[in-house]
Amino acid sequence: MSILIDENTKVVVQGLTGREGQFHALRNRDYGTKIVAGTRPGKGGENVEGIPIFDDVEKAVSETDANVALTFVPPAFAKDAVLEAAFGGCELIVCITEGIPAKDEAEMYDILKKETKASLLGPNCPGLISPGKANVGIMPHEITLPGNIGVVSRSGTLTYQAVHELTNLNIGQSTCIGIGGDPVPGMSFIDVIEKFQADSETEGIVMIGEIGGTAEEEAADFIKQNVTKPVVSYIAGVTAPPGKKNGPRRSNCFR
């Protein structure tokens, strides 16, 4: 087993006709992931490299039974796209888009939680991969190895670094997940760790955090009380100078 995605996962890609969307969706498909549909308003009926395009997610779901949405649409349209995927019947939405305003994220999360059963991974995340089964997002699959360690991280590239090191040590992974570092992420460390704890195939968990905020502390409390599997954790930025802020993106780095 793995968590959230496996060989039966069917993916609809929002923004498949864009440059990034197409590049990564085709990589995901080459890996063996079932990329069954793409959406782009007004382009229904066309196709990208054999993947049929639909006008909206609801149509894509009813035609192809897609259950996971992968979102690459630009920030200004991301909130509507994620909600469209949730109301269109996807149970998991993986939102790669970076730069969504915090208010849009907060509203989006609130509506998803109150009115749908869909889970959201991201925004501003690298997605997730269950090695040997499916890759939904932008993670480089070459560095992964099927196995029994669950990896969860707030950072994108640092996730790859950790997975790469595990693989070099011949330690395989059940599922690797980047939850993203935006102000209002969908799934939290706790949501993911809870699933790893319940997954029979996952034997241990690697959690990678960053300085700033309290998400890591909250996860630590949760682990202490609820997790019986071994958990290894690293928090990036221990040597970063304190109190650096004042720029728009800087506060994001030294959270």
Binding site: S155, L158, E210, A236
Partner: peptide, 21 residues
């Protein structure tokens, strides 16, 4: 580097090796 997390981690590793960013 690419990605805030990886860059922060790079700072850590440089420090571990006795250098300063």
């Amino acid at each position: 580097g690419n990605g805030a997390g990886l860059v922060m981690s790079t700072l850590d590793v440089v420090a571990e090796n006795g250098g300063r960013a």
